[in-house]
Computed example of a mutant assay.
Amino acid sequence: MRKPLIAGNWKMNGSLALLETMKQALTSANIASGVDVAIIPPFTLLMSAKGVLAESSLSLGAQTLHPESSGAYTGEISADMLTECGVSHVLVGHSERRTLFGEDDQAVLARIRAALDAGLTPILCIGETLEEREADRVETVVLGQVKTVIDDLSAEQRSRLVMAYEPVWAIGTGRTATPEQAQQVHAMIRAWLSDKDPALGEGMRLLYGGSMKADNAAELLSQPDIDGGLIGGASLKPDDFIAICHAAG
């Protein structure tokens, strides 16, 4: 049985005050013990979050990392720096990193390897644009992104991954894939993983990351191959985020 994971990606938003408010709200919300919850704030809040979340069951994540362990990379942050901040999870290949910052599949793979080498759990983000969906290229694009990473890792490394399917056309646009559309892609990914290794397909947690909200979370999370959510805007609203966490339980 795969344990659901709800991860809140704050992107370039948030504050210390929101961090305190969110922690208090989540710890008093009686989230089911069968649900993992992670907060993924900006880099500036990571060290504060380490202290704020220390007495809670909440995990701390980061939004990206640099593939090198150190060096002359102004403005970047390494995997070891993240672990020093108490980070356990890190997003890799988020659609905004791919589209706005030019991270291609090989750059994503390098970051995945750096995260794994440091003992972090990478959340590999995959998904297609509207143009790719309309051109009937969902399978080619999504499985191509999966294959680049999976084919380069050992079985042990693969088992430490989490994946998040995020249809790019449904992020920040107000559009959401129907539960059936989301399930179809998740099932496709799981089938490919199972062909590679039945245990990998059975055990891989696949999150949905396309504008999951309080009012659609239950239906999305009821799909057999959706094991949680990578939440954007709703993760900045304690009541909404808690409602999604409850829907996962």
Rank of each mutant, 00 (worst) to 15 (best):
M1N: 12
R2F: 06
N13M: 09
L16P: 05
A17F: 05
L18Y: 06
T21Y: 01
L26T: 03
S28G: 15
A29I: 00
A32V: 04
S33Y: 01
I40F: 02
T44Y: 06
K50L: 08
V52T: 14
A54R: 12
S56M: 07
S56Y: 11
H66T: 02
T74V: 04
G75Y: 01
D80G: 08
D80M: 12
T83M: 12
G93R: 00
R97Q: 14
R97C: 11
L100W: 10
L100V: 12
Q106W: 04
A115N: 12
D117G: 11
L120G: 13
T121H: 12
T121P: 05
C125V: 01
E128L: 11
L130I: 04
L130E: 15
E132H: 10
R133C: 06
R137E: 15
L143D: 09
L143T: 11
V149C: 13
D151K: 13
D152C: 13
L153C: 08
A155C: 09
E156L: 15
R158W: 06
R158M: 14
S159L: 04
R160T: 07
P167T: 07
W169S: 04
I171E: 08
T173C: 10
P179M: 08
Q183R: 00
Q184N: 13
M188Q: 11
R190I: 04
W192K: 10
K196M: 07
P198A: 10
A199F: 07
L200Y: 02
G203L: 03
G203P: 00
S211H: 00
M212K: 00
N216L: 07
A217K: 00
L221I: 00
Q223Y: 04
Q223V: 01
G228L: 03
I231S: 08
D239F: 02
F241G: 00
I244M: 07
H246Q: 14
G249R: 09
